[in-house]
């Protein structure tokens, strides 16, 4: 049985990754998960300098999911390179570093630093507000996405994954722009912008007023978007959004994802990634699937 998948020339032992921001750099999960069993670890977003993040409360539970407005608190690239990359290098897994910034210059500074580091890929979080564009997220404007992708690609020296926001009218337009800019792969979906009001306190549940909704509740939206994007671009797609079980992951793979990421589920089941990876193998056995790659986008054949 062959669970390997390849993204932009990087071979993963299985298609299961962690979703950025839900797994730190793996240190906190080491007690629960053998990181060697994961296809890749995608780190929490890192910026050029430390970010304080948002005021608390930063999270709220929603029906079948959660809403977060952490605000990308992170230690900045210096500490990250000294501490987090060496930690991850101890394991036989691929390292994908998620990059965030408020301006093209900030992204480029981080990407340039990472270009010398022993990592496998970079994932660019373009859901951050762009200070130069009235705080509209980079990922909400196709022109900006293409330009930023091209700028990053020029200096990255390794494959780049553009992580798409679902908070747009037509995600395929943004996906095509990233591909045109030279993205090696696309990952989606980031969280859906939501709001919850605490009626007892008569105010917003999270201090930031809005937050990103994630978890099983968003899965059908994510599967739909992954299906659309996989059919709109030629580059590989990494699917995520509410994956908690192998069956969830397989929905994304059958819809066209080459790999998948487990996110919010890590928060309530620290072993979720391993259970998903094991469950995929079990499915392959049950359905006599030799190579996982046979399953990618197979729904198209049955349409």
């Amino acid at each position: 049985m062959d669970t390997r998948v390849t993204i932009a020339g990087v071979e993963l032992k299985n298609p299961v990754m962690t979703a950025s921001g839900t797994f730190g750099s793996g240190q906190e999960y080491g007690e629960f998960v053998d990181l060697n069993q994961l296809g890749a670890v995608v780190t929490k977003g890192v910026a050029n300098v430390p970010w304080e993040g948002n005021p608390t409360p930063r999270i709220a539970e929603v029906h079948g999911g959660m809403m977060n407005a952490i605000g990308l608190q992170n230690p900045g690239i210096d500490v990250f390179c000294k501490r987090d990359i060496p930690y991850l290098k101890q394991f036989d897994t691929k390292i994908i570093v998620n990059v965030c910034g408020h301006s093209p210059e900030e992204y480029l500074e981080v990407v340039e630093r990472l270009s010398d580091e022993p990592i496998d890929m970079m994932e660019i979080n373009i859901s951050c507000p762009n200070v130069n564009a009235g705080f509209l997220a980079f990922g909400q404007d196709a022109g900006n996405v293409e330009k930023l992708t091209a700028q990053i690609k020029k200096i990255a020296g390794r494959p780049i994954i553009m992580k798409l926001t679902p908070n747009v009218t037509d995600i395929t337009e943004i996906a095509r722009a990233a591909e045109a800019g030279g993205a090696d792969a696309l990952s989606l979906i980031n969280t859906l912008t939501g709001m919850q009001i605490d009626v007892e306190r008569r105010t917003f549940s999270v201090a930031n007023k809005t937050g990103g909704v994630s978890g099983p509740a968003v899965k059908p939206i994510a599967v739909r978007m992954v299906y659309q994007v996989a059919n709109a671009v030629k580059v590989p797609v990494i699917g995520m959004g509410g994956i908690a079980t192998a069956e969830d992951a397989l929905e994304f793979i059958l819809a066209g994802a080459t790999a998948v990421a487990v996110g919010t589920a890590n928060f309530y089941n620290p072993r979720a990634t391993i259970e998903v990876a094991e469950g995929i193998k079990d499915y392959m056995r049950r359905h006599k699937v030799e190579k996982l790659t046979e399953l990618i986008g197979i729904v198209n054949a049955h349409a």
Binding site: G21, T22, F23, G24, E28, Y29, E31, K44, G53, T56, P57, R58, I59, A60, M66, N68, I70, Q73, N266, F267, P270
Partner: peptide, 16 residues
């Protein structure tokens, strides 16, 4: 006390 998600230091929700 603060609102928590993971409880193990990964999500950075419960900071003070």
């Amino acid at each position: 006390e603060e609102h928590m998600a993971c409880g193990i230091g990964a999500c950075l929700a419960c900071v003070c």
